[in-house]
Design a protein around this nucleic acid. Structure first.
Lengths: 119, 119
DNA sequence: CCGGATCCTTGCTGATACTG
DNA sequence: CAGTATCAGCAAGGATCCGG
């Protein structure tokens, strides 16, 4: 249990904590799920995830890029166009993301939430 | 993606977020893993998870109890004795916890961390 | 259209001290 | 031994404004 390690100047207590640094938080999952079907522009992501703020979307995109979970492509057009795309590293996270979603849904049923047309 | 729902006065954007409310954060996983082999006392948990502060351990135990992930048994002795035990609901989370751990370890290898004798 | 910078509020967390 | 209460520091996150 207590096999702590340091990476990128941060202390982790468990490999799961390291995994959640890549897919955790409120917004990384929605972003990854949006991008699983192909690249998307900033504006489309913002529309697809209505409650996220501008700042949070930018921040999360930067973090995911820094962790090599996605790549950023800029097109020199007017008006400017920027696309985000999942890397192979992020593709490798999708199976466990799906398992988490399945568990989340089963948990909702167990506590008595009738699931609102998910996935 | 955007099937939000409210439970217990909190807004969730995805079933995974709901799942992570039960097993997420820095300390819930270490606590659950400690208890998977049977009930433990407060003091033993504190010893098994050295870096957790007293306040955080108490707080996390209360949260897990509130979410029906564990039960609390007090024994009227001197000195007092309190034991924490996983519920069936928490047992049901262990498979996905194990999958997350496995993913975390593989991710560590992918980014070049040689895994320190884990699990 | 995309992104950065600023201010400000809120909440998490540690430290410390105290009780049955 | 187990748990509670209070205070303070810091970081996450929203609102807003400016720039390429």
């Amino acid at each position: 249990m207590m096999n702590e390690f340091t990476y990128d100047n941060r202390l982790y207590y468990h490999p799961i904590e390291f995994a959640m640094a890549h897919i955790g938080g409120t917004w990384k999952i929605p972003i990854l799920l949006c991008l699983r079907n192909g690249p998307m522009r900033y504006g489309d992501l913002k529309t697809a995830i209505p409650r996220i703020s501008h700042k949070m979307l930018i921040t999360q995109l930067r973090e995911l890029e820094e962790k090599k979970m996605l790549t950023r492509h800029t097109f020199q057009e007017k008006p400017p166009r920027v696309e985000y795309q999942l890397t192979a590293l992020a593709q490798g996270a999708l199976p466990v993301v799906d398992q988490l979603a399945e568990y989340g849904i089963s948990l909702m049923k167990q506590v008595g939430i009738d699931c609102p047309t998910v996935l």
